[in-house]
Amino acid sequence: MWLQIASPRAFQDSPELAWGFYGHRLSLYRETVPHAGFELLKRWGKKTINGLSVFTSNVDGQFQKAGFDPALVYDCHGSIHHLQCLAPCREDVWSAEDFLPDVDQDSCRLRNAPPMCPHCGALARPNVLMFGDWAWIERRSASQADRQEKWLSQVSRPVVIELGAGTAIPSVRHFSHRVIHEFGGRLIRINPGEWEVPTRLDVGLPMGAANGLVSIAKILGDEWCSPATGGGDG
């Protein structure tokens, strides 16, 4: 079911069901409060010479919601908070802030009008990379990637703090290992089930993201607070 809904074909065959699924997620992400670990990451980044850069496969926008500079974030799979034309009629991406989904929780179907393309009037869809997706508009994410590449070219001995990134969809893991091999970086992998690290110089912590970051803060003697419910890893 997940594979069928998380695809552009679902918006063509059953737009009410597809937007019911993604509209429900959009509402949840808008209501989710980022956990305390995000604040720790921001504070640590401010203490470094070159600051920080975020690579995330999550589409929930939690880093931006937690107050990270959007110019420092690379959403490699897009963002549910942005829309594009389903066709698409042109390479345009726009904010979803004006769309307020009304979803029937029992049937997971959208009850109100779905968002439409402002250019051609066709159905709009989330600017998220889905399964079997050849129509995803990558322009926004590509611009983010360019900024991150520029940042990587200016840093030395970067440290990757990898949060909750598994091997099923290994986009984040590929990035982490690339930083190790191409930029001489080191890795701190925080993952409750897949915490093993590629070299003896890296660190693996078998725990959730919020607890892992707070545990690091304790070791560093940094100020910290108990993790709040919510947020997402990536």
Rank of each mutant, 00 (worst) to 15 (best):
F183R: 12
P8C: 01
I188M: 02
G51Q: 02
P158C: 05
P15E: 03
P126C: 14
V203Y: 14
A168I: 08
K42F: 02
I169M: 07
Q12M: 10
S156M: 06
N211S: 14
C76M: 15
A209Y: 05
A113K: 02
A66C: 04
C76Y: 01
F63A: 14
V33A: 06
E194A: 13
P198Y: 01
D133A: 11
E97F: 05
G166V: 12
R178Q: 12
R200W: 10
L213G: 10
D60G: 04
W151A: 02
Y22G: 04
F183C: 11
E31Q: 15
H177C: 09
S7K: 00
S176H: 12
P118Q: 02
V59R: 03
K42D: 03
H174W: 00
V103D: 13
W136E: 02
C117P: 02
A18G: 01
R90F: 07
C76D: 12
G231Q: 07
G20Y: 02
K46T: 05
Q62S: 04
L100S: 10
F183W: 12
C76I: 15
A210E: 06
P70M: 00
D75C: 10
Q144S: 15
S226P: 00
D13K: 00
D69A: 11
V103E: 03
D102Y: 01
H81K: 01
V103S: 08
L163A: 00
W195F: 14
N50T: 06
R147C: 12
A122F: 06
I169N: 10
D104S: 13
W151R: 05
L86V: 00
W195T: 05
Y22F: 15
V33G: 07
N112G: 09
E194T: 08
G20F: 04
G121T: 12
L52I: 07
L187F: 08
G234M: 11
R157M: 08
Q4W: 07
A168L: 13
I216H: 02
L213C: 15
G67N: 03
L40R: 04
G78N: 07
S143L: 15
H119C: 12
L41G: 08
F21T: 06
I137Q: 10
G234R: 12
L152N: 10
S95Y: 12
P115K: 07
M207S: 06
S79T: 11
V59A: 13
G23M: 01
L163H: 03
R30I: 07
V93H: 11
G78S: 14
Y74C: 14
P227H: 08
E39G: 10
L72K: 14
L3W: 00
I137V: 00
V160C: 09
I137A: 03
E162M: 11
D92W: 05
V73C: 07
W94D: 01
A10E: 02
E149F: 09
P198T: 08
S226I: 11
M207A: 03
I190G: 04
P118V: 09
E223R: 08
P206K: 08
G37T: 09
V93E: 01
T229Y: 00
R90G: 12
I161F: 08
I180R: 15
V73S: 02
P34D: 00
P34A: 13
S107W: 06
L40P: 03
N50R: 12
G45P: 08
P88Y: 10
R109C: 09
C117N: 01
E91P: 06
H181Y: 09
F68G: 04
S107I: 08
H24T: 13
